[in-house]
Amino acid sequence: MPDIDQIPADPEIRRQWIKYQLKIRGASLASIAREHQVDRNILSTALKRGSPRWDYEIAKVLGLTPQKLWPERYDQNGLPIWNRQK
């Protein structure tokens, strides 16, 4: 399991870090997509914009929670934060 102190704060760097962490575990966005029978682009989009379902699946492979991996996307209770324009 990755040390959460090593998870990059910068979103772009974090995306690359996540891909690397998946790779060293023998996984990839494509393999997760195949497992769930969805297009790989759905997982790629989740890395950029977030999606509770796919955030969970990616984090699960890394042995983390979505809240630990994307603290800006989840509140202290682990619930998704939805940025709605009013």
Rank of each mutant, 00 (worst) to 15 (best):
K60E: 12
R73V: 07
K23L: 15
N77Q: 12
N77Y: 15
R84Q: 04
W17E: 04
W70R: 09
G78T: 01
K60Q: 06
E35W: 02
D5S: 09
V38M: 09
Q16H: 05
L69W: 06
Y56H: 09
R40K: 15
Q76P: 02
Q6S: 11
P2D: 05
E12F: 04
S44H: 10
P11T: 11
D75K: 00
P11S: 12
D55Q: 13
K60R: 15
N41V: 12
Q76Y: 02
E12M: 05
Q85G: 04
D55S: 10
G63R: 00
R40F: 07
R84P: 00
Q21D: 02
R14E: 03
P71Q: 03
A46V: 06
D55Y: 12
I58V: 11
D3V: 10
W82L: 09
P8I: 10
L47A: 13
I32D: 01
K23S: 14
Q16W: 01
E35L: 08
L43C: 12
D39L: 11
L62V: 01
Q85N: 05
Y20G: 05
Q85H: 05
P80G: 11
L64Y: 00
I24T: 10
N77S: 13
A46D: 03
Q16K: 08
P2Y: 06
P71D: 14
Q67V: 04
S44N: 14
P71K: 10
V38C: 13
P80T: 13
Q16M: 04
Y74D: 09
S31M: 06
L64I: 03
L47P: 14
R49C: 12
D5F: 01
Q21F: 01
P8F: 07
R15D: 13
K68R: 10
L22A: 08
S44K: 11
K68Y: 00
N77L: 14
R53I: 15
D5L: 10
N77E: 11
P80V: 06
E72F: 11
I7R: 08
Q16Y: 07
E35F: 04
S28W: 03
A59K: 00
G50L: 06
D39G: 07
P66Y: 02
L43D: 09
R84W: 10
K60W: 06
L47I: 13
D55C: 14
I81G: 00
Y74R: 08
K68T: 11
R49A: 14
V61R: 15
Q37N: 15
K48D: 07
D75C: 05
L62K: 03
E35K: 12
N83P: 01
A27R: 02
P11C: 06
K48F: 12
R84A: 09
G26Y: 03
